[in-house]
Design a protein around this nucleic acid. Structure first.
Lengths: 259, 259
DNA sequence: TTTTATATGATTGGATTCAATCATATAATA
DNA sequence: TATTATATGATTGAATCCAATCATATAAAA
């Protein structure tokens, strides 16, 4: 029997919430909670998964931010994705000891995942404002993890606000790894003014800074400039030098790390 | 072929870390990463799951804090667990609007989960120092989420430290929901001095405070006292009044909420 | 109202995952 | 060194999960 569309959409909205809530939700539980058959539960799952934010797994679904890290790419010798290649280079630059800052963004998340594969994390302290990064690194043996407080920003899953900037005051980083949403002639850009300003503050407090952006960010302009290409940072990217030049990006060769 | 015991234990330790890292880890990925057959991967999984902290699911395993909530109890009209019953009562006391504080602890996590089932979360702001709670509530439509910064504490998955106490200074809560590790004649106790002190600070900043502890915490004494039974708070618990009295707990009737 | 489109549940065959069993190589123990 | 215990991988049959197909009731469109 056919059900009104708005009911279906409400149900799917609710499903998304359920998964977000529990982290993992088995198909059987969906049936119970939503009062539908397994077939419909699976169908809803497929629709919601296609829209993003959740990941289908055998037997149920997960909230995206705690899906398997192996599944995103480098499982068993397959071709590495651009993000993973960037993360690999970044990990090589990440010091064994000292205090590093990890920003939000999926590429930096990939870096955090790589970090976990290190044998010894003792002597390393990570400061982050990213909830997914903290969730990943929380409890890693030997690692010291600090979070800056703030208000949660849905889009980037990051903590921001006056609290975060103040908390930053107490820190000096030996290295900072940052994300961004776009790169263009004007520099690296972001969709959130406060986040851009926050990132600039991080830059000032770090001995070395690395922006990690994959080639899909090329030409994708977002409103708020974080830094111009003159800024004191290196760019780790899979975009070729010729692509960068074609987009009007003029970054000195020695500050460009191509992967 | 038999492998030395210390190698096996190291491998299982690593497995725990892997799952914590990714949230969810499929069996196939374990094979790749640990270099063992599926049979061994499953066997290791069973051992580690038995020790707690991870939950087995079909096809892999999850970090405990993002296992299915439906699976822990109230699936399709089954008997609710004590934690769920406590969370239910707590949720009824949680205001529709205003600023509330949510502490760490599995019972408070259950409360956070219940919160997500509310239709309208607009007008409600949640402040927390718990990473799992933040992960759950992050992105809930209409809800304003704030985290206090600090240093990550593995055992409670909570942020603590000078940063957290300072960040607290700016807040006043209309209600605070707190956890604890033990209850005895002396009051509610905790295994971490700084956390106890932090909780007392929260108490001073909240118009109403509720400690949520299930009956298993009875008689289980941990070293650091948070509050005595005279303190300005209510206790939500599944322990019967007679049980409490038998354990030497002397809390006024009107501040006890039995579920 | 009439017609069309589709959301649902049941069914089915295939794929995946799992627990149990067994032979074997090697660590642990005597 | 000789003996025992056990961790491992392969195999197998059962259980579970899933995508595709189909009939049907009913919402949506005409």
């Amino acid at each position: 029997m056919r059900v009104p569309l708005h009911i279906v959409q409400q149900r799917r909205e609710r499903l998304r919430g359920l998964i977000r809530a529990g982290g993992f939700l088995p198909v059987a539980d969906i049936c119970g909670r939503l009062g539908v058959s397994e077939a419909t539960a699976r169908r809803d799952l497929a629709v919601v998964a296609a829209r993003g934010h959740i990941t289908r797994t055998r037997g149920g679904a997960l909230a995206d931010y705690n899906a398997s890290f192996a599944s995103h790419g480098e499982r068993a010798g397959r071709a590495r994705t651009a993000k993973d290649r960037i993360a690999r280079s970044a990990a090589a630059l990440l010091p064994r000891r000292g205090v590093v800052f990890l920003d939000a963004g999926t590429t930096v998340q990939a870096l955090a995942r790589r970090l976990l594969r290190r044998r010894r994390l003792g002597g390393l302290a990570v400061v982050t404002n990213s909830l997914p990064v903290a969730t990943m690194l929380g409890g890693a043996p030997g690692l010291e993890l600090h979070m800056l407080g703030g208000t949660f920003l849905d889009r980037q899953a990051v903590l921001l606000g006056r609290g975060a900037v103040q908390a930053l005051g107490a820190w000096r980083f030996s290295a900072a790894f940052l994300g961004g949403e776009g790169m263009g002639p004007a520099g690296i850009t972001n969709s959130h003014a406060e986040l851009a300003s926050f990132q600039r503050t991080v830059l000032r407090r770090a001995a070395k800074s690395y922006f990690c952006l994959d080639a899909t960010k090329l030409g994708h302009a977002t409103p708020h400039a974080v830094v111009t290409w003159r800024g004191p940072f290196s760019l780790i990217t899979d975009a070729k030098e010729s692509q960068l030049a074609a987009s009007g990006i003029n970054i000195p060769h020695r500050r460009l790390i191509s992967v």
